[in-house]
Design a protein around this nucleic acid. Structure first.
Length: 549
RNA sequence: GCUUCUGUAGCUUAAUUGGAUAAAGCACCAGAUUGCGGAUCUGGAGAGUAUAGGUUCGAAUCCUAUCAGAAGCACCA
Protein backbone atom coordinates (compact mmCIF):
# COMPACT_ATOMS: atom_id res chain seq x y z
CA UNK A 1 0.00 0.00 0.00
CA UNK A 2 1.13 3.51 -0.70
CA UNK A 3 0.68 4.31 2.97
CA UNK A 4 3.24 1.69 3.95
CA UNK A 5 5.72 2.75 1.30
CA UNK A 6 5.47 6.30 2.45
CA UNK A 7 5.98 5.26 6.04
CA UNK A 8 9.14 3.36 5.16
CA UNK A 9 10.50 6.22 3.08
CA UNK A 10 10.13 8.67 5.92
CA UNK A 11 11.54 6.20 8.39
CA UNK A 12 14.63 5.77 6.24
CA UNK A 13 15.11 9.50 5.85
CA UNK A 14 14.92 9.98 9.58
CA UNK A 15 17.35 7.18 10.21
CA UNK A 16 19.81 8.61 7.71
CA UNK A 17 20.01 11.94 9.46
CA UNK A 18 19.32 11.19 13.11
CA UNK A 19 20.20 7.50 13.40
CA UNK A 20 16.88 6.94 15.10
CA UNK A 21 14.65 4.05 14.10
CA UNK A 22 11.11 5.05 14.82
CA UNK A 23 7.92 3.67 13.29
CA UNK A 24 6.22 6.34 11.25
CA UNK A 25 2.44 6.20 11.49
CA UNK A 26 0.69 7.41 8.39
CA UNK A 27 -3.00 8.15 8.49
CA UNK A 28 -5.50 9.53 6.04
CA UNK A 29 -6.87 12.80 7.39
CA UNK A 30 -10.59 13.49 7.26
CA UNK A 31 -10.14 16.90 5.72
CA UNK A 32 -8.96 17.06 2.12
CA UNK A 33 -7.08 20.23 2.91
CA UNK A 34 -4.89 18.34 5.36
CA UNK A 35 -3.45 16.23 2.57
CA UNK A 36 -3.85 12.71 1.30
CA UNK A 37 -1.71 11.26 4.00
CA UNK A 38 -0.52 12.75 7.22
CA UNK A 39 1.84 11.91 10.00
CA UNK A 40 2.45 13.11 13.51
CA UNK A 41 6.10 12.10 13.34
CA UNK A 42 7.43 15.61 13.92
CA UNK A 43 5.53 16.00 17.16
CA UNK A 44 6.49 12.51 18.18
CA UNK A 45 10.23 12.94 17.62
CA UNK A 46 10.15 16.36 19.16
CA UNK A 47 8.69 15.16 22.42
CA UNK A 48 10.67 11.94 22.52
CA UNK A 49 14.14 13.02 21.39
CA UNK A 50 14.00 16.78 21.61
CA UNK A 51 14.55 17.19 17.88
CA UNK A 52 13.92 20.65 16.48
CA UNK A 53 10.54 20.70 14.77
CA UNK A 54 11.39 23.22 12.08
CA UNK A 55 14.64 21.58 11.20
CA UNK A 56 13.00 18.19 10.81
CA UNK A 57 10.27 19.59 8.61
CA UNK A 58 12.77 21.41 6.38
CA UNK A 59 14.77 18.26 6.01
CA UNK A 60 11.80 16.05 5.15
CA UNK A 61 10.23 18.45 2.70
CA UNK A 62 13.52 18.74 0.82
CA UNK A 63 14.18 15.05 0.65
CA UNK A 64 10.83 13.33 0.30
CA UNK A 65 10.42 12.96 -3.43
CA UNK A 66 7.19 12.69 -5.43
CA UNK A 67 5.06 14.41 -2.82
CA UNK A 68 4.12 17.90 -1.85
CA UNK A 69 4.49 18.45 1.86
CA UNK A 70 3.09 21.00 4.24
CA UNK A 71 3.35 21.33 7.96
CA UNK A 72 0.34 22.65 9.83
CA UNK A 73 0.56 22.63 13.59
CA UNK A 74 3.53 20.38 12.94
CA UNK A 75 1.43 17.68 11.41
CA UNK A 76 3.13 16.50 8.28
CA UNK A 77 0.55 16.85 5.51
CA UNK A 78 1.47 14.94 2.40
CA UNK A 79 -0.18 15.43 -0.98
CA UNK A 80 -0.10 13.06 -3.93
CA UNK A 81 1.12 14.87 -6.98
CA UNK A 82 -1.18 15.49 -9.91
CA UNK A 83 0.63 13.24 -12.36
CA UNK A 84 0.13 10.23 -10.15
CA UNK A 85 -3.57 10.97 -9.98
CA UNK A 86 -3.87 11.41 -13.74
CA UNK A 87 -1.99 8.17 -14.30
CA UNK A 88 -4.34 6.43 -11.94
CA UNK A 89 -7.45 7.72 -13.70
CA UNK A 90 -6.04 6.55 -17.02
CA UNK A 91 -5.89 3.05 -15.62
CA UNK A 92 -2.29 2.70 -14.52
CA UNK A 93 -3.12 1.26 -11.17
CA UNK A 94 -0.40 0.00 -8.87
CA UNK A 95 -0.31 -3.73 -8.60
CA UNK A 96 -0.73 -5.22 -5.17
CA UNK A 97 2.26 -7.30 -4.24
CA UNK A 98 1.78 -10.87 -3.18
CA UNK A 99 1.98 -11.41 0.54
CA UNK A 100 3.66 -14.47 1.92
CA UNK A 101 1.60 -14.68 5.10
CA UNK A 102 -0.86 -17.53 5.28
CA UNK A 103 -4.19 -16.45 6.69
CA UNK A 104 -7.15 -18.50 7.83
CA UNK A 105 -10.50 -16.93 8.57
CA UNK A 106 -12.94 -18.95 10.62
CA UNK A 107 -16.54 -17.80 10.44
CA UNK A 108 -20.20 -18.75 10.31
CA UNK A 109 -19.69 -22.01 12.26
CA UNK A 110 -23.33 -22.92 12.87
CA UNK A 111 -24.34 -25.81 15.07
CA UNK A 112 -25.75 -28.89 13.44
CA UNK A 113 -29.45 -29.55 13.95
CA UNK A 114 -30.23 -25.98 14.82
CA UNK A 115 -31.86 -23.55 12.43
CA UNK A 116 -29.65 -20.95 10.79
CA UNK A 117 -30.76 -17.86 12.67
CA UNK A 118 -30.22 -14.11 12.34
CA UNK A 119 -27.54 -14.37 14.97
CA UNK A 120 -25.46 -16.33 12.49
CA UNK A 121 -25.88 -13.66 9.87
CA UNK A 122 -23.37 -11.44 11.63
CA UNK A 123 -20.45 -13.84 11.74
CA UNK A 124 -21.22 -15.20 8.29
CA UNK A 125 -21.41 -11.84 6.56
CA UNK A 126 -18.58 -10.06 8.39
CA UNK A 127 -16.31 -13.08 8.21
CA UNK A 128 -16.89 -13.46 4.52
CA UNK A 129 -16.07 -9.84 3.85
CA UNK A 130 -12.83 -10.14 5.82
CA UNK A 131 -11.95 -13.22 3.80
CA UNK A 132 -12.60 -11.40 0.54
CA UNK A 133 -10.55 -8.40 1.62
CA UNK A 134 -7.53 -10.53 2.54
CA UNK A 135 -7.81 -12.24 -0.80
CA UNK A 136 -7.90 -8.92 -2.62
CA UNK A 137 -4.81 -7.82 -0.72
CA UNK A 138 -3.10 -10.95 -2.01
CA UNK A 139 -2.53 -12.77 1.21
CA UNK A 140 -2.50 -16.52 0.93
CA UNK A 141 -5.89 -16.84 2.54
CA UNK A 142 -8.38 -19.57 3.14
CA UNK A 143 -11.69 -19.78 5.00
CA UNK A 144 -13.04 -22.46 7.27
CA UNK A 145 -16.54 -23.11 8.45
CA UNK A 146 -15.96 -24.61 11.88
CA UNK A 147 -19.23 -26.51 12.13
CA UNK A 148 -20.44 -27.57 15.56
CA UNK A 149 -20.87 -31.21 14.63
CA UNK A 150 -19.65 -32.93 17.76
CA UNK A 151 -20.57 -32.91 21.40
CA UNK A 152 -23.17 -33.96 23.87
CA UNK A 153 -25.99 -32.29 21.94
CA UNK A 154 -25.88 -35.25 19.57
CA UNK A 155 -26.55 -37.57 22.46
CA UNK A 156 -29.55 -35.44 23.29
CA UNK A 157 -30.79 -35.38 19.73
CA UNK A 158 -30.36 -39.06 19.10
CA UNK A 159 -32.15 -39.82 22.34
CA UNK A 160 -34.99 -37.55 21.32
CA UNK A 161 -35.24 -39.05 17.85
CA UNK A 162 -35.23 -42.59 19.13
CA UNK A 163 -37.85 -41.97 21.77
CA UNK A 164 -40.18 -39.34 20.38
CA UNK A 165 -39.24 -38.95 16.74
CA UNK A 166 -40.43 -40.50 13.53
CA UNK A 167 -38.02 -40.62 10.61
CA UNK A 168 -40.73 -40.34 8.01
CA UNK A 169 -41.91 -37.07 9.55
CA UNK A 170 -38.44 -35.71 10.21
CA UNK A 171 -37.31 -36.28 6.65
CA UNK A 172 -40.02 -34.00 5.29
CA UNK A 173 -38.78 -30.99 7.23
CA UNK A 174 -35.62 -32.04 9.09
CA UNK A 175 -34.53 -28.70 10.51
CA UNK A 176 -37.82 -27.80 12.11
CA UNK A 177 -38.53 -31.29 13.36
CA UNK A 178 -35.06 -31.68 14.85
CA UNK A 179 -35.39 -28.30 16.46
CA UNK A 180 -38.72 -29.30 18.01
CA UNK A 181 -37.15 -32.48 19.36
CA UNK A 182 -34.20 -30.53 20.73
CA UNK A 183 -36.48 -28.12 22.56
CA UNK A 184 -38.59 -30.99 23.83
CA UNK A 185 -35.50 -32.72 25.18
CA UNK A 186 -34.57 -29.68 27.26
CA UNK A 187 -38.08 -29.39 28.66
CA UNK A 188 -38.21 -33.06 29.59
CA UNK A 189 -34.68 -32.93 30.97
CA UNK A 190 -35.75 -30.39 33.55
CA UNK A 191 -38.35 -32.80 34.87
CA UNK A 192 -36.22 -35.89 34.54
CA UNK A 193 -32.46 -35.66 35.14
CA UNK A 194 -32.11 -39.25 34.00
CA UNK A 195 -32.20 -37.94 30.45
CA UNK A 196 -28.93 -36.07 30.90
CA UNK A 197 -27.20 -39.30 31.75
CA UNK A 198 -28.78 -41.09 28.78
CA UNK A 199 -27.63 -38.35 26.43
CA UNK A 200 -24.12 -38.51 27.81
CA UNK A 201 -24.06 -42.24 27.28
CA UNK A 202 -25.09 -41.81 23.67
CA UNK A 203 -22.44 -39.17 23.11
CA UNK A 204 -19.88 -41.50 24.62
CA UNK A 205 -20.92 -44.20 22.19
CA UNK A 206 -20.60 -41.72 19.36
CA UNK A 207 -17.09 -40.79 20.38
CA UNK A 208 -16.24 -44.49 20.57
CA UNK A 209 -17.34 -44.83 16.94
CA UNK A 210 -20.36 -47.02 17.61
CA UNK A 211 -21.55 -47.85 14.10
CA UNK A 212 -25.29 -47.49 14.61
CA UNK A 213 -24.88 -44.16 16.37
CA UNK A 214 -22.44 -42.89 13.77
CA UNK A 215 -24.87 -43.60 10.99
CA UNK A 216 -27.59 -41.66 12.80
CA UNK A 217 -25.13 -38.85 13.36
CA UNK A 218 -24.25 -38.79 9.68
CA UNK A 219 -27.90 -38.50 8.73
CA UNK A 220 -28.39 -35.54 11.03
CA UNK A 221 -25.28 -33.85 9.63
CA UNK A 222 -26.51 -34.25 6.09
CA UNK A 223 -29.93 -32.80 6.84
CA UNK A 224 -28.38 -29.78 8.45
CA UNK A 225 -25.70 -29.20 5.87
CA UNK A 226 -28.27 -29.26 3.09
CA UNK A 227 -30.15 -26.55 4.88
CA UNK A 228 -27.04 -24.46 5.61
CA UNK A 229 -25.90 -24.77 2.02
CA UNK A 230 -29.20 -23.35 0.81
CA UNK A 231 -28.58 -20.28 2.89
CA UNK A 232 -24.97 -20.00 1.75
CA UNK A 233 -26.07 -20.27 -1.87
CA UNK A 234 -28.53 -17.43 -1.41
CA UNK A 235 -25.82 -15.34 0.22
CA UNK A 236 -23.26 -16.40 -2.38
CA UNK A 237 -20.83 -17.55 0.23
CA UNK A 238 -18.43 -20.37 -0.47
CA UNK A 239 -16.19 -22.20 1.94
CA UNK A 240 -12.90 -23.74 0.93
CA UNK A 241 -12.99 -25.83 4.09
CA UNK A 242 -15.77 -27.17 6.23
CA UNK A 243 -13.88 -29.04 8.87
CA UNK A 244 -16.18 -29.41 11.80
CA UNK A 245 -15.28 -30.18 15.38
CA UNK A 246 -15.57 -33.89 14.63
CA UNK A 247 -12.53 -33.59 12.37
CA UNK A 248 -10.41 -32.67 15.37
CA UNK A 249 -12.06 -34.93 17.92
CA UNK A 250 -9.58 -37.78 17.55
CA UNK A 251 -6.63 -35.44 18.05
CA UNK A 252 -8.06 -34.41 21.38
CA UNK A 253 -6.81 -37.31 23.50
CA UNK A 254 -3.24 -36.53 22.68
CA UNK A 255 -3.67 -32.96 23.82
CA UNK A 256 -5.12 -34.11 27.11
CA UNK A 257 -2.31 -36.59 27.71
CA UNK A 258 0.28 -34.02 26.81
CA UNK A 259 -1.22 -31.48 29.13
CA UNK A 260 -1.22 -33.94 31.99
CA UNK A 261 2.34 -35.03 31.28
CA UNK A 262 3.62 -31.49 31.22
CA UNK A 263 1.67 -30.88 34.42
CA UNK A 264 -0.10 -27.93 32.87
CA UNK A 265 -3.38 -29.71 33.41
CA UNK A 266 -4.58 -31.31 36.61
CA UNK A 267 -7.34 -33.68 37.57
CA UNK A 268 -10.10 -32.15 39.58
CA UNK A 269 -13.35 -33.90 40.55
CA UNK A 270 -12.62 -36.44 37.87
CA UNK A 271 -12.27 -33.88 35.11
CA UNK A 272 -9.06 -32.64 33.51
CA UNK A 273 -8.68 -28.89 33.85
CA UNK A 274 -6.21 -26.13 33.02
CA UNK A 275 -5.83 -23.02 35.15
CA UNK A 276 -5.24 -20.11 32.80
CA UNK A 277 -5.79 -17.24 35.15
CA UNK A 278 -5.81 -17.02 38.94
CA UNK A 279 -9.06 -15.05 38.84
CA UNK A 280 -10.92 -17.39 36.56
CA UNK A 281 -12.35 -20.79 36.85
CA UNK A 282 -10.24 -23.35 35.06
CA UNK A 283 -10.86 -24.53 31.52
CA UNK A 284 -12.17 -28.07 31.37
CA UNK A 285 -10.58 -30.15 28.63
CA UNK A 286 -11.91 -33.55 29.61
CA UNK A 287 -15.16 -34.22 31.36
CA UNK A 288 -15.38 -36.59 34.30
CA UNK A 289 -17.00 -39.23 32.11
CA UNK A 290 -13.91 -39.22 29.92
CA UNK A 291 -15.44 -37.49 26.91
CA UNK A 292 -14.09 -34.35 25.31
CA UNK A 293 -15.80 -31.05 24.77
CA UNK A 294 -15.57 -27.91 22.60
CA UNK A 295 -12.48 -26.58 24.36
CA UNK A 296 -10.50 -29.73 23.63
CA UNK A 297 -11.57 -29.76 20.01
CA UNK A 298 -10.70 -26.11 19.63
CA UNK A 299 -7.27 -26.59 21.15
CA UNK A 300 -6.67 -29.38 18.65
CA UNK A 301 -7.87 -27.01 15.96
CA UNK A 302 -5.30 -24.42 16.90
CA UNK A 303 -2.52 -26.99 16.89
CA UNK A 304 -3.60 -28.35 13.52
CA UNK A 305 -3.85 -24.95 11.92
CA UNK A 306 -0.58 -23.67 13.29
CA UNK A 307 1.58 -26.79 12.99
CA UNK A 308 0.18 -28.65 10.04
CA UNK A 309 -1.29 -25.88 7.91
CA UNK A 310 1.40 -23.43 9.02
CA UNK A 311 -1.00 -20.51 9.16
CA UNK A 312 0.52 -17.18 10.18
CA UNK A 313 -2.66 -15.37 11.00
CA UNK A 314 -5.77 -17.11 12.28
CA UNK A 315 -8.85 -14.94 12.53
CA UNK A 316 -11.83 -16.01 14.60
CA UNK A 317 -15.07 -14.23 13.74
CA UNK A 318 -17.23 -15.16 16.72
CA UNK A 319 -20.04 -13.67 18.81
CA UNK A 320 -19.07 -11.62 21.84
CA UNK A 321 -20.96 -13.99 24.14
CA UNK A 322 -18.13 -16.43 23.55
CA UNK A 323 -15.34 -13.92 23.94
CA UNK A 324 -14.25 -14.94 27.43
CA UNK A 325 -14.12 -18.60 26.60
CA UNK A 326 -12.17 -18.14 23.40
CA UNK A 327 -9.64 -15.93 25.12
CA UNK A 328 -9.21 -18.47 27.85
CA UNK A 329 -8.68 -21.11 25.22
CA UNK A 330 -6.05 -18.99 23.48
CA UNK A 331 -4.23 -18.75 26.76
CA UNK A 332 -4.39 -22.49 27.31
CA UNK A 333 -3.03 -23.05 23.81
CA UNK A 334 -0.14 -20.79 24.67
CA UNK A 335 0.58 -22.63 27.92
CA UNK A 336 0.51 -25.92 26.07
CA UNK A 337 2.79 -24.60 23.37
CA UNK A 338 0.37 -25.62 20.66
CA UNK A 339 1.57 -22.82 18.44
CA UNK A 340 4.63 -20.63 18.12
CA UNK A 341 3.81 -17.07 19.00
CA UNK A 342 6.49 -15.77 16.68
CA UNK A 343 5.06 -17.57 13.71
CA UNK A 344 1.35 -17.56 14.31
CA UNK A 345 -0.94 -14.80 15.45
CA UNK A 346 -4.42 -15.49 16.77
CA UNK A 347 -6.91 -12.69 16.23
CA UNK A 348 -10.32 -12.68 17.81
CA UNK A 349 -13.00 -10.50 16.29
CA UNK A 350 -15.94 -10.74 18.61
CA UNK A 351 -18.98 -9.13 17.13
CA UNK A 352 -22.01 -7.81 18.95
CA UNK A 353 -25.05 -9.97 19.35
CA UNK A 354 -28.40 -9.51 17.66
CA UNK A 355 -31.02 -9.32 20.38
CA UNK A 356 -34.75 -8.93 20.71
CA UNK A 357 -36.13 -5.49 21.47
CA UNK A 358 -36.36 -6.21 25.20
CA UNK A 359 -32.64 -6.95 25.17
CA UNK A 360 -33.25 -10.66 25.39
CA UNK A 361 -30.99 -13.03 23.52
CA UNK A 362 -32.29 -15.32 20.83
CA UNK A 363 -32.07 -18.86 22.10
CA UNK A 364 -32.59 -22.11 20.27
CA UNK A 365 -33.54 -23.84 23.48
CA UNK A 366 -36.25 -21.32 24.21
CA UNK A 367 -37.39 -21.48 20.62
CA UNK A 368 -37.62 -17.70 20.19
CA UNK A 369 -35.31 -17.36 17.21
CA UNK A 370 -35.85 -15.73 13.86
CA UNK A 371 -34.46 -17.73 10.98
CA UNK A 372 -32.22 -16.02 8.51
CA UNK A 373 -34.36 -17.44 5.74
CA UNK A 374 -37.33 -15.47 7.05
CA UNK A 375 -35.28 -12.29 6.86
CA UNK A 376 -34.16 -13.09 3.35
CA UNK A 377 -37.75 -13.78 2.27
CA UNK A 378 -38.93 -10.50 3.68
CA UNK A 379 -36.08 -8.64 2.01
CA UNK A 380 -36.99 -10.20 -1.34
CA UNK A 381 -40.58 -9.06 -0.86
CA UNK A 382 -39.59 -5.50 -0.09
CA UNK A 383 -37.08 -5.28 -2.91
CA UNK A 384 -39.61 -6.67 -5.34
CA UNK A 385 -42.20 -4.17 -4.23
CA UNK A 386 -39.84 -1.27 -4.72
CA UNK A 387 -38.85 -2.41 -8.19
CA UNK A 388 -42.45 -2.95 -9.15
CA UNK A 389 -43.28 0.61 -8.18
CA UNK A 390 -40.83 1.62 -10.87
CA UNK A 391 -42.20 -0.80 -13.39
CA UNK A 392 -39.23 -3.14 -13.30
CA UNK A 393 -39.70 -6.86 -13.13
CA UNK A 394 -36.29 -8.44 -12.89
CA UNK A 395 -35.60 -11.39 -10.60
CA UNK A 396 -31.85 -10.89 -10.76
CA UNK A 397 -32.09 -7.29 -9.56
CA UNK A 398 -34.50 -8.26 -6.80
CA UNK A 399 -32.04 -10.79 -5.48
CA UNK A 400 -29.03 -8.51 -5.62
CA UNK A 401 -30.85 -5.66 -3.92
CA UNK A 402 -32.42 -7.89 -1.27
CA UNK A 403 -29.25 -9.72 -0.30
CA UNK A 404 -27.16 -6.58 -0.61
CA UNK A 405 -29.35 -4.73 1.87
CA UNK A 406 -29.02 -7.42 4.52
CA UNK A 407 -25.27 -7.63 4.18
CA UNK A 408 -24.79 -3.89 4.01
CA UNK A 409 -26.80 -3.14 7.11
CA UNK A 410 -24.64 -5.54 9.09
CA UNK A 411 -21.35 -4.44 7.57
CA UNK A 412 -21.88 -0.70 7.89
CA UNK A 413 -21.54 -0.65 11.66
CA UNK A 414 -18.48 -1.47 13.68
CA UNK A 415 -18.70 -5.12 14.60
CA UNK A 416 -18.37 -4.66 18.34
CA UNK A 417 -21.76 -3.20 19.21
CA UNK A 418 -24.87 -5.23 19.82
CA UNK A 419 -27.82 -4.95 17.47
CA UNK A 420 -31.38 -4.74 18.69
CA UNK A 421 -33.38 -6.56 16.11
CA UNK A 422 -35.79 -4.49 14.04
CA UNK A 423 -36.99 -5.34 10.57
CA UNK A 424 -36.45 -1.84 9.30
CA UNK A 425 -32.92 -1.70 10.58
CA UNK A 426 -31.82 -4.85 8.81
CA UNK A 427 -33.71 -4.12 5.62
CA UNK A 428 -33.12 -0.40 5.28
CA UNK A 429 -33.24 0.83 1.66
CA UNK A 430 -33.14 4.59 2.31
CA UNK A 431 -30.23 6.92 2.91
CA UNK A 432 -26.77 5.49 3.50
CA UNK A 433 -27.45 2.06 2.09
CA UNK A 434 -26.41 -0.48 -0.48
CA UNK A 435 -29.30 0.68 -2.65
CA UNK A 436 -27.79 4.17 -2.83
CA UNK A 437 -24.47 2.73 -3.95
CA UNK A 438 -26.07 0.34 -6.41
CA UNK A 439 -28.06 3.24 -7.82
CA UNK A 440 -24.93 5.32 -8.29
CA UNK A 441 -23.41 2.41 -10.14
CA UNK A 442 -26.40 2.26 -12.48
CA UNK A 443 -25.99 5.95 -13.15
CA UNK A 444 -22.33 5.55 -14.03
CA UNK A 445 -23.18 2.62 -16.21
CA UNK A 446 -25.70 4.64 -18.13
CA UNK A 447 -23.20 7.43 -18.77
CA UNK A 448 -20.51 5.04 -19.88
CA UNK A 449 -22.85 3.32 -22.29
CA UNK A 450 -23.80 6.60 -23.91
CA UNK A 451 -20.25 7.82 -24.24
CA UNK A 452 -19.06 5.94 -27.29
CA UNK A 453 -16.06 6.90 -29.39
CA UNK A 454 -13.89 8.00 -26.53
CA UNK A 455 -10.63 9.49 -27.72
CA UNK A 456 -8.10 8.39 -25.16
CA UNK A 457 -5.53 10.75 -26.60
CA UNK A 458 -7.33 13.67 -24.98
CA UNK A 459 -5.67 15.55 -22.20
CA UNK A 460 -6.95 15.19 -18.71
CA UNK A 461 -8.31 18.39 -17.35
CA UNK A 462 -9.62 18.39 -13.84
CA UNK A 463 -11.62 21.58 -13.78
CA UNK A 464 -12.76 22.01 -10.21
CA UNK A 465 -11.99 21.17 -6.62
CA UNK A 466 -14.74 18.56 -6.29
CA UNK A 467 -13.37 16.51 -9.15
CA UNK A 468 -9.89 16.83 -7.78
CA UNK A 469 -10.99 15.60 -4.37
CA UNK A 470 -12.95 12.72 -5.84
CA UNK A 471 -9.96 11.65 -7.89
CA UNK A 472 -7.72 11.79 -4.84
CA UNK A 473 -10.17 9.64 -2.93
CA UNK A 474 -10.36 7.07 -5.72
CA UNK A 475 -6.59 6.93 -5.81
CA UNK A 476 -6.48 5.81 -2.18
CA UNK A 477 -8.81 2.85 -2.63
CA UNK A 478 -6.19 0.25 -1.75
CA UNK A 479 -5.18 2.11 1.37
CA UNK A 480 -8.75 2.10 2.58
CA UNK A 481 -9.17 -1.57 1.78
CA UNK A 482 -6.03 -2.31 3.72
CA UNK A 483 -7.28 -0.54 6.79
CA UNK A 484 -10.63 -2.30 6.46
CA UNK A 485 -8.98 -5.71 6.84
CA UNK A 486 -10.48 -6.36 10.23
CA UNK A 487 -13.36 -3.89 10.09
CA UNK A 488 -15.16 -3.76 6.77
CA UNK A 489 -17.23 -0.80 7.96
CA UNK A 490 -14.29 1.40 6.94
CA UNK A 491 -14.74 0.24 3.37
CA UNK A 492 -18.49 0.82 3.58
CA UNK A 493 -17.88 4.37 4.68
CA UNK A 494 -15.38 4.91 1.90
CA UNK A 495 -17.78 3.72 -0.78
CA UNK A 496 -20.54 5.96 0.51
CA UNK A 497 -18.21 8.94 0.37
CA UNK A 498 -17.20 8.13 -3.19
CA UNK A 499 -20.85 7.96 -4.21
CA UNK A 500 -21.75 11.19 -2.45
CA UNK A 501 -18.92 13.03 -4.13
CA UNK A 502 -19.75 11.62 -7.52
CA UNK A 503 -23.46 12.36 -7.21
CA UNK A 504 -22.67 15.93 -6.29
CA UNK A 505 -20.56 16.35 -9.41
CA UNK A 506 -23.19 14.59 -11.46
CA UNK A 507 -25.87 17.01 -10.38
CA UNK A 508 -23.76 20.12 -10.67
CA UNK A 509 -21.75 19.65 -13.88
CA UNK A 510 -22.63 18.36 -17.33
CA UNK A 511 -20.77 15.26 -18.41
CA UNK A 512 -21.89 14.13 -21.86
CA UNK A 513 -23.04 17.62 -22.84
CA UNK A 514 -19.85 19.36 -21.72
CA UNK A 515 -18.41 21.30 -24.67
CA UNK A 516 -14.76 21.37 -23.69
CA UNK A 517 -13.59 18.00 -24.97
CA UNK A 518 -10.80 17.58 -22.44
CA UNK A 519 -13.09 18.29 -19.52
CA UNK A 520 -15.73 15.98 -20.94
CA UNK A 521 -13.19 13.23 -21.37
CA UNK A 522 -11.99 13.70 -17.81
CA UNK A 523 -15.50 13.50 -16.38
CA UNK A 524 -16.22 10.33 -18.29
CA UNK A 525 -12.97 8.89 -17.07
CA UNK A 526 -13.92 9.80 -13.51
CA UNK A 527 -17.27 8.12 -14.02
CA UNK A 528 -15.53 5.02 -15.24
CA UNK A 529 -13.26 4.98 -12.23
CA UNK A 530 -16.16 5.47 -9.83
CA UNK A 531 -17.97 2.63 -11.52
CA UNK A 532 -15.02 0.28 -11.19
CA UNK A 533 -14.35 1.28 -7.62
CA UNK A 534 -17.96 0.62 -6.64
CA UNK A 535 -17.90 -2.73 -8.32
CA UNK A 536 -14.73 -4.02 -6.69
CA UNK A 537 -15.59 -2.35 -3.40
CA UNK A 538 -19.04 -3.90 -3.17
CA UNK A 539 -17.62 -7.22 -4.21
CA UNK A 540 -15.31 -7.11 -1.20
CA UNK A 541 -18.42 -6.73 0.93
CA UNK A 542 -20.00 -9.67 -0.85
CA UNK A 543 -22.55 -7.43 -2.56
CA UNK A 544 -23.35 -7.40 -6.25
CA UNK A 545 -23.90 -4.45 -8.54
CA UNK A 546 -27.15 -4.19 -10.45
CA UNK A 547 -27.71 -3.32 -14.08
CA UNK A 548 -31.31 -2.22 -13.83
CA UNK A 549 -33.20 -0.94 -10.86
C1' G B 1 -19.71 -11.36 44.03
C1' C B 2 -15.71 -11.94 40.17
C1' U B 3 -14.29 -11.11 34.92
C1' U B 4 -15.35 -8.66 30.38
C1' C B 5 -17.96 -5.34 27.16
C1' U B 6 -21.04 -1.02 26.11
C1' G B 7 -22.81 4.28 27.08
C1' U B 8 -21.62 9.92 21.26
C1' A B 9 -27.56 14.97 18.22
C1' G B 10 -34.85 12.98 19.08
C1' C B 11 -33.62 7.90 16.71
C1' U B 12 -29.73 4.51 14.23
C1' U B 13 -24.68 4.77 13.85
C1' A B 14 -19.00 6.96 12.36
C1' A B 15 -14.56 8.80 14.13
C1' U B 16 -8.16 5.28 10.55
C1' U B 17 -7.05 3.08 18.01
C1' G B 18 -3.96 9.51 21.44
C1' G B 19 -4.45 14.10 16.85
C1' A B 20 -6.43 19.04 13.53
C1' U B 21 -13.44 22.41 13.60
C1' A B 22 -16.82 15.16 16.81
C1' A B 23 -18.86 12.88 11.07
C1' A B 24 -23.17 10.69 8.57
C1' G B 25 -28.14 8.65 7.70
C1' C B 26 -33.36 8.73 9.37
C1' A B 27 -37.02 12.15 11.07
C1' C B 28 -37.92 17.80 10.84
C1' C B 29 -37.64 22.74 8.07
C1' A B 30 -36.31 25.46 3.51
C1' G B 31 -34.66 25.02 -1.51
C1' A B 32 -32.71 22.85 -6.66
C1' U B 33 -34.52 19.94 -12.42
C1' U B 34 -35.76 23.31 -20.16
C1' G B 35 -28.50 18.43 -17.92
C1' C B 36 -26.67 12.41 -18.65
C1' G B 37 -31.93 7.39 -14.44
C1' G B 38 -35.27 12.39 -8.75
C1' A B 39 -33.99 5.61 -5.50
C1' U B 40 -30.71 12.50 -6.99
C1' C B 41 -28.56 17.21 -5.23
C1' U B 42 -27.97 21.92 -1.90
C1' G B 43 -28.76 24.45 2.65
C1' G B 44 -30.76 24.84 7.91
C1' A B 45 -31.68 23.49 12.85
C1' G B 46 -29.73 19.68 16.26
C1' A B 47 -24.52 16.70 20.49
C1' G B 48 -19.09 18.62 23.05
C1' U B 49 -19.25 12.35 23.65
C1' A B 50 -23.37 8.94 30.96
C1' U B 51 -21.20 11.88 35.46
C1' A B 52 -16.84 13.74 38.36
C1' G B 53 -11.75 14.00 38.59
C1' G B 54 -6.72 12.83 36.50
C1' U B 55 -2.54 11.93 32.83
C1' U B 56 -0.26 15.63 28.29
C1' C B 57 1.47 19.87 23.54
C1' G B 58 -3.45 17.32 22.45
C1' A B 59 -8.69 12.80 25.25
C1' A B 60 -15.01 10.34 22.65
C1' U B 61 -10.47 7.24 22.77
C1' C B 62 -5.77 6.14 28.28
C1' C B 63 -6.17 6.02 34.16
C1' U B 64 -9.42 6.36 38.84
C1' A B 65 -14.22 6.61 41.01
C1' U B 66 -19.53 6.74 40.41
C1' C B 67 -24.18 5.74 37.62
C1' A B 68 -26.86 2.80 33.88
C1' G B 69 -27.27 -1.51 30.62
C1' A B 70 -25.43 -6.30 28.73
C1' A B 71 -22.59 -10.95 28.51
C1' G B 72 -19.69 -14.95 30.74
C1' C B 73 -18.56 -17.46 35.34
C1' A B 74 -16.76 -26.01 35.49
C1' C B 75 -18.26 -30.66 32.81
C1' C B 76 -23.47 -26.86 26.63
C1' A B 77 -21.09 -24.40 22.38
Amino acid sequence: MEKDLLSKKIQNLIYKKYKILETVEISIPKEDSFGDYSSNIILKLNSKYDIDKNELFEYLSKNLEHYKIEAVNFFLNIFINDNSIIDYLRGNKPEIKKRSEKVLVEYSSPNIAKPFSVSHATTTIIGDSIYRIYKYLKYEVTNDNHIGDWGVQFGKLIYAINNWGDYSIIEKDPINELNKLYIKFHKEEEKNPELTIKAKELYKKLSENDKAIISQWEKIIKWSMDNFNNVYDLLEIKFENTLGESFYANMAKQIINNALEKKIATKENGAVVIYTDPNKKPLIIEKSDGTTLYSTHDLATIEYRAQKLKENIIIYEIGSDQKNIIEQMFKAAELLNLYDKNKTQLILISHGIIKLSGGEKFSTRKGNIIKLEEIIDESFKRAKGLLEERGIDNEDSVKKIAIGAIKFNILKRHYSSDIIFEWNKLLDFNGDTSVYIQYTYVRCNSIIQKSTNLDSQKDISISNEQEQNLARLLYKFNDYVDSAKLSPNILVDYLLTVCKRYNFIYSKYPILKEKDQNIKYTRILLTKNVQETIKTGLNLLGINVVKKM
